[in-house]
């Protein structure tokens, strides 16, 4: 039947009533591609936290662990940047990201951070691998570590600063979720690659990260209600569930088996996988929440109605005064203007 109005969310009787335009989305789904963006989120976080880990290891004289951290950070950031560039509609114009410095654009801030962090992390990794300029490499590593925390979390703000309901509404928890996830993944990779002798505390780092991630994601889903639905349901929900399971399991394995090379490595794999799944889950949840008008309309409608009710109590609507003549008067003026324009338009074309 050819009617625009009415509930587009079919089936499920528990679905809230709402009106839409032929059930079409109100928002544009993100044009960000998969796996580019999930990878970008994952690798950026991994790299950031790895830099901190490396610095900490360095300062506690655990050179192998530091080496793992620096290499991971270097490779991670390289991969992250590649993913970002690959996702651009015009990759050749990546550098345009540095035309402006814009606090309102997390991607701008992120790009600047990358611009400083990337070379540092890269240099640190390079000197490790090539074994040259160790002193400078070490400094670079420490520098990267200083930016590590931001690297671990800024992508959370990047996606939260959008109209995508499941992302924007989650802006309070998202940085903690991503930060925790980043820590867990960094710890995970360290557990896989570093000698057991030097991984003391890494399992705890994983545990803290996992805890931060799980706690904040639980809180987020609880708080969001309808808008949080994509984090629980559908493909995105599946990824989120997997992420939490893997991360939780990984952290425990790592902790319990921290004396065992194998158990640690296993835990590490689970942690890294968990972090990657989380990024997929969050990405897909955002896309889903943009596609279904329900997530845009219902909460906004409630908000609007509430405000209307409030203001109605405040002051009752004044009796309207009509001023028809000015409309008509205006129409005349407008025609003059418009006809004039029309003719110029003709000459112009």
């Amino acid at each position: 039947m050819n009617s625009a109005a009415g509930n587009s969310a079919s089936g499920n009787s528990r679905q809230p009533e709402f009106e839409s335009y032929y059930g079409r989305p109100v928002l544009k789904a993100p044009t960000w591609k998969s796996p580019d963006v999930p990878l970008y989120l994952f690798l950026g976080g991994l790299s950031g936290s790895s830099s901190i880990l490396a610095a900490a290891a360095d300062l506690t004289g655990r050179l192998a662990l530091a080496r793992v951290g620096r290499v991971t950070a270097g490779v991670g950031i390289a991969g992250s940047v590649l993913a970002l560039v690959h996702d651009l509609g015009r990759p050749a114009r990546f550098v345009n990201m540095l035309r402006v410095f814009k606090p309102t654009s997390p991607l701008s801030m992120g790009s600047w951070t990358l611009a400083v962090y990337g070379p540092l992390a890269g240099a640190a990794a390079a000197s490790e691998v090539l074994g040259v300029a160790r002193g400078l490499g070490r400094l670079a590593g420490l520098g990267a570590a200083a930016l590590g925390p931001v690297m671990s979390t800024y992508t959370a703000v990047l996606i939260a600063d959008s109209a995508v309901p499941a992302w924007h509404e989650a802006h309070p928890e998202m940085p903690f979720m991503f930060g925790g996830s980043a820590m867990a993944s960094a710890a995970g990779v360290a557990l896989i690659a570093a000698p057991i002798a030097e991984t003391g505390g890494v399992a705890h780092m994983a545990l803290v990260g996992a805890g931060m991630e799980l706690a904040s994601s639980q809180e987020m889903e609880r708080r969001l209600g309808l808008v949080g639905e994509p984090y629980r349901k559908g493909r995105s929900g599946g990824w989120m569930w997997t992420a939490q399971a893997l991360t939780g399991l990984g952290a425990l394995t790592a902790l319990v088996g921290r004396r065992s090379r194998v158990a640690s490595a296993a835990g590490g794999v689970l942690l890294a996988a968990g972090s990657l799944s989380l990024r997929y889950g969050v990405y897909l949840a955002g896309v889903e929440s943009a596609r279904d008008p329900k997530y845009t309309v219902v909460p906004q409608r409630e908000r609007a109605d509430a405000r209307a009710a409030a203001s109605a109590e405040a002051e009752p609507a004044p009796t309207p005064q009509v001023t028809r003549h000015r409309r008509v008067l205006w129409v005349h003026g407008a025609h003059e203007a418009r006809d004039g324009h029309r003719h110029r338009a003709f000459r112009r074309r």
Partner: peptide
């Protein structure tokens, strides 16, 4: 969050 990460690690 960044602070928490730093502190955490």
């Amino acid at each position: 969050a960044a602070a928490a990460v730093a502190a955490g690690v």
